[in-house]
Design a protein around this nucleic acid. Structure first.
Length: 572
DNA sequence: CTCTTACCTG
DNA sequence: CAGGTAAGAG
């Protein structure tokens, strides 16, 4: 591919020539009116807060692998972290129980102090946050201006803007580092705390009053909750601000012949100079575009459902501007988010990191990508990760951080699921099928309280059950015919037990892990269904094209209530 | 006419 | 399992 080597400097003039066609039409309009990620961060804020609140006791679970994945060396001098570390680094082995407790209490108090007085010690969390807020206001102001004749915006202002945004992001990253440090420590606290309680229990001597450390712990948790929530949402806000600013700053037309071949990259940051810091150079690999198709698919992000397949099947020539076809009306945040959630993080023109250079990437120290994204997270599908689905190359780096945040959120059992249906939902639906073959949409709503039901989600769920039934009846017919072939004459000889092959087939389909005790009722209904098929086929009713409908009518009356347990969002 | 659903396909 | 389609209900 014709990718510019990452070494190229990203000075302003150059940046302006990068991928003009991409820059234009694709995102300008929709994102110009996009409110800086407000919806995502809002949702996040809400969701995270809820989750945190409901997970009071397990919130701070953070396996030590996580903590060890954090490399303070790779980060620019994080005094706070170091200070904390030195303060907390002594080992417990030699301490007697009471010494141990005392020491721990001290540590907890230390942390609380550190957080309350916040970062004057280390530097700047507080003032940074203030700065972020200021920036936010300033940005709003600038965005208003830029929405008008954009090209008239003085370049220096843009540069400054970008530079400051850059700084903000770095600040947020530092904050996250710090936060993570704190959480890691708290986890250690909790961990040894529980160990200790185990010991204490065996010795039949719970610590009286606990030195008020329980209270301290609680306070700490609260503080951490707030901090985490705030930090994450601020980071996200920042990223989105940056995104929209960047897009606004890029307004050159798409008709340049350049866009077809040579320069298929877009500037990582806004088109301005951000000084050739190492980070700038290193992060460039994130912004490669592989071809026109990607852009076409990008459309799917913001145009409603039908456009996805359309766009994929009928890529537009680059010099045309297909992207605008859906933009007659301003898009709502919710539409975009909905699309993200629906099609998931990798549904669009996501660019793979194809960096050949093995230069370290500072922002990844936070992400702890290798550990988190491979092992522990596995199948986790957090809606938050869908931020990645934006797949706007120039925010890829930030996406990495967002993603890592999301990952760690799942890691911490926050399990942010947003509104889309996850594999767990599917699994749950399958188990529910053992009770109900024809669930009403109301029933579904009741039993999937963690799902935000809109038309798409509802029909998807209904579609699932429709598919379940399809498989179910296919099996019924198959085994009924088999019984007839096997010479069974009487309907009464047709039965379904847990040993039946029919049951095994069904169980394999709906309960693959076989970790669910299928209710007897399901067997009874299955038997009725099988007998219905048997009779109908025996009587040659199957010559009627709609012969199955009578059977469906019988079966749909045999639904039973789904146990209340299924209503729990965390079922499974 | 819109919305739902059964059926078919990949 | 999801997408597409066509028939049917309201």
């Amino acid at each position: 591919m014709n990718l510019s080597p990452p070494e190229h400097s990203m000075d302003g003039s150059k940046a302006e020539h990068l991928l003009p066609c991409f820059r234009r039409s694709a995102f300008d309009e929709p994102l110009a009116s996009y409110h800086s990620g407000s919806i995502i961060s809002h949702l996040l804020r809400k969701t995270i807060h809820n989750k945190l609140t409901s997970l009071d006791n397990s919130l701070l679970y953070l396996p030590s692998a996580n903590a060890s994945g954090f490399d303070p060396e790779s980060n620019s001098a994080d005094d706070f972290a170091r200070e904390e570390q030195s303060c907390l680094s002594f080992k417990d082995e030699d301490l007697s129980v009471s010494e141990h407790l005392q020491a721990k209490r001290t540590r907890v108090e230390n942390i609380i102090r550190g957080m309350a007085a916040s970062p004057n010690a280390d530097g700047e969390a507080e003032s940074e946050c203030e700065a972020v807020r200021c920036r936010r206001d300033l940005l709003k102001e600038n965005k208003r201006k830029q929405r008008l004749p954009q090209h008239q915006e003085p370049k220096t202002s843009k540069d400054e803007e970008c530079h400051k945004l850059k700084e903000q992001l770095q600040s947020m990253q530092r904050l996250l580092h710090q936060l993570q440090e704190k959480i890691s420590h708290v986890h250690d606290q909790n961990y040894s705390e529980s160990e200790e309680r185990e010991d204490a229990r065996s010795e039949h001597s719970m610590e009286p009053g606990g030195f008020g450390s329980d209270r301290a712990m609680k306070n700490l948790k609260e503080t951490l909750k707030c901090e985490l929530t705030r930090t994450m949402s601020e980071s996200i806000d920042t990223v989105f601000k940056k995104l929209s600013t960047t897009l606004l700053n890029q307004s050159s037309p798409c008709h340049s012949p350049d866009c077809s071949e040579t320069e298929k990259r877009i500037p990582e940051d806004s088109p301005s100079d951000l000084s050739d810091s190492e980070e700038n150079v290193n992060s460039r690999h994130c912004f490669e575009i592989h071809g026109p198709e990607h852009q076409t698919e990008a459309l799917s992000l913001v145009v409603r459902k039908p456009s996805l397949s359309q766009a994929v099947k009928r890529p537009f020539p680059l010099h045309q501007t297909p992207f605008q076809m859906g933009y007659s009306a301003p898009l709502h945040d919710s539409q975009i988010l909905e699309h993200l959630l629906k099609y998931g993080p990798h549904s669009t023109f996501c660019l793979e990191r194809s960096s050949p250079d093995s230069v370290e990437r500072p922002w990844e120290s936070l992400a702890m990508r290798s550990k988190l994204s491979s092992g522990h997270l596995g199948q986790h599908q957090t809606g938050l990760v869908s931020v990645d689905a934006l797949c706007l190359p120039h925010i890829k780096m930030e996406c990495g951080d967002l993603q890592s945040m999301a990952e760690r959120s799942s890691f911490m059992s926050l399990n942010i699921s947003f509104e889309r249906l996850t594999p767990n939902h599917l699994k749950k639906a399958k188990l529910m099928f053992f009770y109900t073959r024809y669930p009403s949409s109301n029933l579904l709503k009741n039993f999937f309280p963690d799902v935000k039901f809109d038309r798409c989600i509802t029909s998807q769920l209904i579609k699932w059950f429709s598919n379940f039934r399809e498989f179910y009846y296919i099996q019924m017919e198959k085994f009924a015919r088999q019984a007839i072939i096997d010479g069974v004459n009487d309907v009464k000889d047709v039965s379904v037990t847990r040993e039946s092959e029919l049951f095994r087939a069904l169980n394999m389909h709906y309960n693959k892990a076989n970790d669910f005790q299928v209710p007897d009722r399901f067997l009874e209904v299955a038997e009725v269904a099988l007998q219905e098929f048997f009779s109908a086929i025996s009587l040659s009713k199957d010559s009627d094209p709609s012969w199955k409908k009578a059977i469906y009518k019988v079966i749909c009356k045999l639904d039973s209530d789904v146990p209340e347990d299924f209503k729990s969002p965390s079922y499974l």
